[in-house]
Deep mutational scan, measured.
Amino acid sequence: MEVVDPQQLGMFTEGELMSVGMDTFIHRIDSTEVIYQPRRKRAKLIGKYLMGDLLGEGSYGKVKEVLDSETLCRRAVKILKKKKLRRIPNGEANVKKEIQLLRRLRHKNVIQLVDVLYNEEKQKMYMVMEYCVCGMQEMLDSVPEKRFPVCQAHGYFCQLIDGLEYLHSQGIVHKDIKPGNLLLTTGGTLKISDLGVAEALHPFAADDTCRTSQGSPAFQPPEIANGLDTFSGFKVDIWSAGVTLYNITTGLYPFEGDNIYKLFENIGKGSYAIPGDCGPPLSDLLKGMLEYEPAKRFSIRQIRQHSWFRKKHPPAEAPVPIPPSPDTKDRWRSMTVVPYLEDLHGADEDEDLFDIEDDIIYTQDFTVPGQVPEEEASHNGQRRGLPKAVCMNGTEAAQLSTKSRAEGRAPNPARKACSASSKIRRLSACKQQ
């Protein structure tokens, strides 16, 4: 084909351009004929944790799935940006308080904090938690009735009371019990989460009196709706648990309003109706937990002794299953770290194939690490110290990083047969305790 000078094309009309061969290198194709290559998922490591896909996002930050490269346990990490926390009232204080509380709590029905990582340079905090497959609110939203069968609701409620009793025994008032803060594992274990607005009572406090509340409006008791200066913290949790039980068994809320002012007005009056299909035992329990006067409201001991709580409820309806993943529609909620794991395991070791967030990740503290002497050669063979940054567990980050890069360049065919977990650990520049 004859090559045409581009400067001469402006002298031709459209018809003349076609005659000189423009149609031979300008093609129009339908979008259905285009085959897009999927974007390669680059592996990203935060300390010893391999990052997966997004699980959810809230006002405080994002939650992603991660894999512990040492234990191969599935975890969830809450990623918090200090810049964003400053824009939220009491944001930083709530996060630090939640970390302090979770560090000393150990119960099967309370979410466990596994690790805390802090990135000084990017001003990011990573709260590594045990993995929960789904939230209770997500399960309720997945069915038209917006409720659980009585047998399933009873099982979840009993676990909620177990976890709540443990928190109260530790002198902690949750203040925000609701389905949105109750998570579930694949085995059906309920976990109380989000202790950001919780309050730890003084060890020598005479009672459970509280003065502040930041919980969700629909789950607040009349004493808070009416603006009382002080109130019983434990009875606030009992009320919120009662509203939660009402919601998961009926699909409704005892109090509603077009806006928060109308909602608080209705809560302050204390008038509500219980659907007739709840039955006398459940209705009596709800009335005891939603008692207007805090002094007359049920205690956890009274809830445990109630006939509806103690009764064994046979399954009359099919239980609400864990819904498919909202993004991938995966009904099994498979591990989202698998594509990243395959990338590390299947590809040659190259620095361009993975990302390490930083050479140094500070753990379990908000301060910069200490310094240790770096050896410097002298005339008599002895070495003197220069400062060298280290990880919180004493690992020399720069030395590990250099060693990792040197190993990656060394030709050794046997290394390709290593397991995925050992490869992740070798790529991680800074081991965590």
Rank of each mutant, 00 (worst) to 15 (best):
291 E>Q: 10
140 L>K: 06
358 D>L: 14
128 V>Y: 11
313 H>E: 11
100 Q>L: 04
94 N>I: 07
171 G>I: 12
181 N>T: 00
163 G>L: 02
102 L>H: 15
206 A>F: 02
6 P>Y: 15
167 L>C: 07
252 L>I: 13
81 K>R: 08
203 P>H: 03
194 D>G: 00
165 E>S: 11
383 R>V: 09
30 D>S: 15
166 Y>C: 04
219 F>Y: 09
345 H>Y: 07
127 M>W: 03
416 K>T: 11
356 I>N: 12
388 K>V: 10
417 A>R: 14
87 R>I: 12
148 F>E: 01
70 E>G: 03
407 E>L: 04
167 L>W: 00
34 V>F: 05
84 K>L: 15
260 I>F: 04
400 L>A: 15
397 A>E: 12
210 C>H: 11
130 E>P: 02
139 M>R: 05
133 V>H: 12
53 D>L: 02
163 G>F: 00
51 M>T: 08
423 K>R: 08
187 G>W: 15
134 C>M: 01
137 Q>T: 14
398 A>V: 06
350 D>N: 06
184 L>F: 03
69 S>M: 03
48 K>V: 09
412 N>G: 15
375 E>G: 12
335 M>Q: 06
58 G>A: 05
401 S>W: 04
134 C>E: 12
428 S>G: 14
379 H>V: 12
17 L>P: 15
266 N>C: 05
344 L>C: 07
133 V>Y: 14
349 E>Q: 08
412 N>H: 07
33 E>G: 05
372 V>S: 12
315 P>K: 14
90 N>V: 08
403 K>L: 09
132 C>G: 02
187 G>P: 12
299 S>C: 10
248 I>L: 06
384 R>M: 10
417 A>V: 04
224 I>P: 05
84 K>C: 15
171 G>S: 11
108 K>T: 10
410 A>K: 14
35 I>S: 12
324 P>L: 11
240 S>G: 06
322 I>L: 05
322 I>V: 06
363 T>F: 01
393 N>I: 11
231 F>N: 15
38 P>T: 05
359 D>C: 07
272 Y>F: 09
11 M>V: 13
113 L>P: 02
345 H>T: 14
336 T>G: 07
228 L>A: 15
293 E>R: 02
365 D>L: 09
129 M>I: 03
85 L>G: 01
105 L>R: 03
32 T>L: 08
382 Q>F: 07
71 T>C: 10
242 G>N: 00
150 V>K: 10
157 F>W: 03
154 H>P: 00
32 T>S: 12
289 M>C: 04
286 L>V: 07
372 V>Q: 12
36 Y>R: 10
215 G>T: 08
133 V>R: 02
156 Y>G: 01
127 M>S: 04
385 G>N: 14
323 P>K: 14
415 R>D: 12
254 P>H: 11
387 P>R: 12
399 Q>A: 07
270 G>I: 04
230 T>A: 04
99 I>Q: 02
270 G>R: 11
339 P>G: 03
370 G>W: 11
297 R>P: 00
345 H>D: 09
146 K>S: 10
70 E>Q: 03
59 S>H: 07
136 M>L: 06
359 D>V: 06
35 I>L: 07
295 A>S: 12
82 K>R: 15
283 S>T: 12
77 V>Q: 03
407 E>R: 13
405 R>K: 10
400 L>V: 11
30 D>R: 15
318 A>Y: 15
416 K>Y: 08
361 I>E: 13
215 G>S: 07
414 A>I: 10
105 L>A: 10
337 V>A: 09
14 E>F: 07
89 P>L: 02
261 Y>G: 05
416 K>F: 03
286 L>T: 07
271 S>A: 07
233 G>Y: 06
34 V>A: 06
59 S>A: 08
188 G>F: 05
428 S>E: 15
276 G>I: 02
52 G>L: 11
62 K>R: 15
221 P>D: 00
7 Q>P: 04
397 A>D: 10
133 V>A: 11
305 Q>K: 02
407 E>D: 14
269 K>T: 12
41 K>R: 14
15 G>W: 01
31 S>Y: 10
39 R>C: 01
267 I>S: 08
34 V>L: 07
393 N>S: 07
98 E>I: 02
33 E>D: 07
272 Y>R: 03
401 S>M: 12
127 M>Y: 09
147 R>Y: 12
32 T>Y: 03
19 S>F: 05
212 T>L: 06
56 G>M: 06
183 L>S: 03
58 G>S: 05
194 D>R: 00
351 E>V: 10
309 F>S: 02
299 S>V: 05
244 T>M: 11
431 K>L: 14
426 R>K: 12
171 G>L: 11
166 Y>D: 00
337 V>G: 07
353 L>F: 09
390 V>Q: 15
93 A>V: 01
59 S>F: 03
275 P>E: 02
195 L>D: 15
227 G>T: 15
402 T>I: 09
322 I>E: 07
135 G>N: 15
201 L>N: 08
397 A>C: 06
216 S>N: 02
202 H>E: 12
81 K>H: 09
313 H>A: 10
46 I>A: 12
27 H>D: 08
110 V>P: 02
376 E>M: 05
104 R>K: 10
348 D>W: 14
301 R>P: 06
314 P>S: 10
189 T>L: 09
126 Y>H: 03
127 M>R: 01
287 K>P: 01
179 P>V: 02
128 V>A: 02
199 E>A: 12
393 N>Y: 13
222 P>L: 01
416 K>V: 11
403 K>R: 06
287 K>V: 08
420 A>G: 13
125 M>S: 04
128 V>H: 03
115 D>L: 08
177 I>D: 00
389 A>L: 13
68 D>G: 07
168 H>A: 09
360 I>G: 12
45 L>W: 15
277 D>A: 04
152 Q>L: 01
367 T>L: 12
330 D>M: 14
94 N>G: 05
181 N>R: 00
86 R>G: 10
33 E>I: 03
118 Y>A: 03
282 L>D: 09
212 T>P: 05
417 A>T: 13
283 S>C: 05
24 T>V: 04
209 T>G: 11
397 A>I: 13
320 V>T: 14
161 I>M: 10
338 V>D: 11
406 A>F: 11
389 A>K: 15
